Each structure stands twice: as structure tokens, then as C-alpha cells.
Amino acid sequence: MSIDPSSIPNFGGQPEPEPAGPSGPVLPDQDLVKQLLEQMELKYVVDEEGDLAAPWEQFRTYFMFRGEEEQQVFSVRTFYDRPHGIEVKPQLLEVIDDWNRRTLWPKVYSHTNDDGTVRLIGEAQMLIGTGVSLEHFVSSTVSWVRASIEFDRWLIEQLGLETDAESGDDEKPGDDEV
């Protein structure tokens, strides 16, 4: 199965063309995601656990398949690398609660490390075990990537973090290692 390059939505806000491909359900796999990332001109790596990851300057987005057969789930999970001190966790929780109320994805939550630093994680999931339409899979994956980028920009604005916001380096993944 392949994705028609004209079907890949761009990141510039243009209307999204219809994908050409199978009319029935498809079972997405890692090769399909690689093809989609390549057509979106996003660099990616495969980590030591076999998951695909697109690294940006301040975050990494993983594309993972979990579960067995009819219960298989496709998950797009973004790990935001910017560390926050434990003292600002109440403010972070208030901000991410606001995001989660206003948006469908990614749903964002916090993780506190043993050293007291707080990091944020965003996630969206799709049940794919019985197959999904190619159009739905492509548009959802692209939307989730866009939303992950948008969350980082939004967080910078909400918290008044000017670092990284002006550089514009978060548009596409770079050569950062995961």
C-alpha cells in the first residue's frame, strides 16, 4: 500500500487534499508511518526498542504500535524535553488542564522525575486492530503531529518562555538523536 504524495496535508494551513489509496480498511504499520513521515519531509529515527521517533529541538514525537490483533492501538506520543521545576508544577497542571479542556489532542499530562524535574507528555491514540480507512489514518496522524507542535508553541506563550519560540527551529525535526 502506498500514499499518494498529493494527499499529504502541508503544514501551511492549505486545504487538505483527499488521499488516494485503498477504499476499504487498511491495517497501518510502521512502514506506512515511515512513508508518511518521508512524504511530510520529516526526519525520523528508529530507537533501540524499534519505535519510530521524529526529534525536534525541544521535543520528540514517537509513533508506536501496541497490543495484539483486534486490540492493536496506534499511539502518537510526544515527550517535551523542557524541564520544569517542581515548584511550578501547580501552574503547569493548571495550564495543561486548560489545554486539555480546549483541544481534542494531544492530551497532555505531567511526569515528575526522581530529581524533582517535571516534564510534559502529549498523547493521541487510535484503535487500528480491525483496520481503518487510509484517509482517516493519514489525516489523524498529520493532525496529531501539527497539534504536538502547536502545544509546544502554546505552552511557550502561556508560560512566557521566550527561549526557542523565536528560533523557529521547531517546524521540522532536525538531526537530534533520540
Rank of each mutant, 00 (worst) to 15 (best):
M1P: 06
D4P: 03
D4Y: 09
P5S: 08
P5M: 05
P5V: 05
S7E: 01
I8F: 02
N10D: 15
F11K: 11
G12L: 15
E16G: 14
E18W: 10
G21L: 05
P22D: 07
P22T: 04
S23T: 15
S23Q: 14
S23G: 15
G24P: 03
V26F: 00
P28Y: 10
D29F: 01
V33K: 08
V33L: 14
K34C: 11
L36R: 02
L36T: 03
L37D: 00
L37W: 01
M40Q: 10
Y44F: 15
V46F: 03
V46G: 01
V46Q: 07
D47E: 05
D47P: 04
E48Y: 00
E49I: 03
E49F: 05
G50A: 08
L52E: 08
A53R: 08
A53Q: 09
A53C: 15
A54M: 07
P55I: 00
W56A: 06
E57S: 06
F59H: 04
R60E: 11
R60N: 13
F65E: 05
F65Y: 09
G67R: 02
E68S: 11
V73C: 04
S75C: 10
Y80S: 03
Y80H: 04
R82E: 12
R82L: 14
P83A: 07
P83E: 09
H84V: 02
H84D: 05
G85M: 09
P90F: 03
Q91R: 15
Q91M: 14
E94Y: 08
I96W: 06
D98G: 09
W99T: 00
W99V: 01
W99C: 00
R101H: 13
T103S: 09
T103Q: 15
T103H: 15
S110N: 12
D115A: 06
V118I: 07
V118L: 05
L120K: 03
I121L: 14
G122N: 02
A124S: 15
M126Y: 04
M126L: 15
L127H: 12
L127K: 11
I128M: 04
G129Q: 04
T130I: 12
G131E: 01
G131Q: 08
L134Y: 00
E135L: 06
H136I: 14
F137T: 07
V138W: 00
S139E: 12
S139F: 12
S140G: 07
V142W: 10
S143Q: 10
S143L: 12
W144V: 13
R146I: 14
R146Q: 14
R146Y: 08
I149F: 08
E150F: 13
E150P: 00
D152I: 01
R153E: 11
R153G: 12
R153A: 10
W154E: 01
W154I: 00
L155C: 06
L159P: 04
L159F: 02
G160L: 09
G160Y: 09
L161A: 12
E162M: 10
T163A: 13
D164A: 14
D164H: 12
D164T: 12
E166I: 13
E166C: 09
G168S: 06
D169M: 04
E177M: 10
